[in-house]
């Protein structure tokens, strides 16, 4: 069980009557547990559209998406409770902080569980747990979400999705707009949640340093088509990077520069600055 894309395309139409395919003929299989996937690609490559198909927020115009056993196609099926699918696969949008609307942080986080018919005491408990998962303490519960900073709002809104306890979590650029410290905290948080709960987590990102350091699997989209599906190691050592106009991780770029300028033979595939420095020291010792 999990999410299976079978020849999925989605065509947008606008009032100007011109149509275009945001995603094209996607075949993809995501397990219901234990995945930690980065979804990358140029702006406009179809990443967000693909993500919205993962919980039936969008319906394919062609092909089918199987979500935990339910077959989602262009035609609505009365037997499928689409709302249930959205509880199983939680989707966090770009700038989720703009969806905050309640008077207090607590009420805002409780909104999701209450909507899925959880009773109010239980929803309160879930809100507390979710808040601590995103690294904020109980003192935030009674604060007005609109008076929080951008980073805090983002965490509160992510807590709102965590509180419904989805099996799969899909996040669309969750770290954009965060400072490096906040970004690291959040990435460690996702990584922790993944390790603790075995939940499958799919994250859309442009940050190749994060992709290299944290993820087990990378999916690359280009012009709506899936052009790579494999490990970060394999991706960064192939020429797919250039073909897809993607960037290399900064560690790799810096070490390549050293190889070029000093004619060294450094193994450039290092994930952290510490590992990179170690590799430099190793090679310099033998020079």
């Amino acid at each position: 069980m999990g999410i299976r894309f079978r020849n999925v395309s989605h065509e947008y139409s606008s009032y100007t009557k011109k149509t275009y395919k945001a995603i094209q003929d996607i075949n993809l299989s995501i397990e219901g547990t234990n995945e930690f996937i980065a979804l990358v690609g140029h702006t406009g490559s179809g990443k967000s559209t693909l993500a919205k198909h993962m919980n039936a927020l969008m319906f394919p115009t062609d092909g089918s998406v199987e979500i935990f056993g339910s077959e989602v196609t262009k035609k609505r099926n009365k037997k499928i409770k689409y709302n249930d699918l959205r509880r199983q696969v939680g989707l966090v949008f770009q700038f989720p902080e703009y969806q905050l609307f309640e008077e207090t942080v607590e009420k805002d986080i409780m909104f999701g569980p209450l909507n899925f018919k959880v009773d109010s005491e239980k929803a309160k408990t879930l809100a507390r747990e979710a808040l601590s998962l995103v690294g904020l303490d109980d003192s935030y519960l009674n604060r007005n979400p609109f008076n929080l900073s951008g980073g805090e709002k983002k965490r509160v809104s992510i807590a709102g999705i965590l509180a419904i306890d989805p099996k799969v979590l899909v996040l669309d650029e969750p770290t954009s707009g965060l400072d490096p410290y906040g970004r690291q905290v959040l990435m460690n948080l996702f990584s922790d949640i993944h390790k603790k709960t075995n939940k499958s987590i799919i994250i859309i990102t442009h940050d190749m340093d994060l992709v290299y350091r944290y993820f087990k699997r990378v999916i690359v989209l280009k012009d709506g088509e899936l052009t790579f599906d494999g490990t970060p190691d394999k991706l960064f050592q192939s020429d797919i990077i250039e073909q897809n106009h993607l960037d290399l991780p900064n560690t790799v770029k810096a070490l390549k520069q050293l190889n070029e300028k000093l004619n060294l033979n450094l193994d450039v595939y290092q994930k952290t600055p510490e590992a990179a420095a170690k590799e430099v020291r190793r090679v310099m010792k033998h020079e």
Binding site: D179, P180, Y181, D209, N250, A254, L258, E274, A277, V280
Partner: peptide
């Protein structure tokens, strides 16, 4: 201030070799 240095400078700060540091 919880800010990050560019990765290449982080590497530079961790190695002793002057030429490597200069290039980075």
């Amino acid at each position: 201030n919880h800010l990050e240095l560019p990765v290449a400078l982080e590497i530079a700060n961790l190695v002793e070799d002057e030429e490597i540091r200069r290039i980075l």
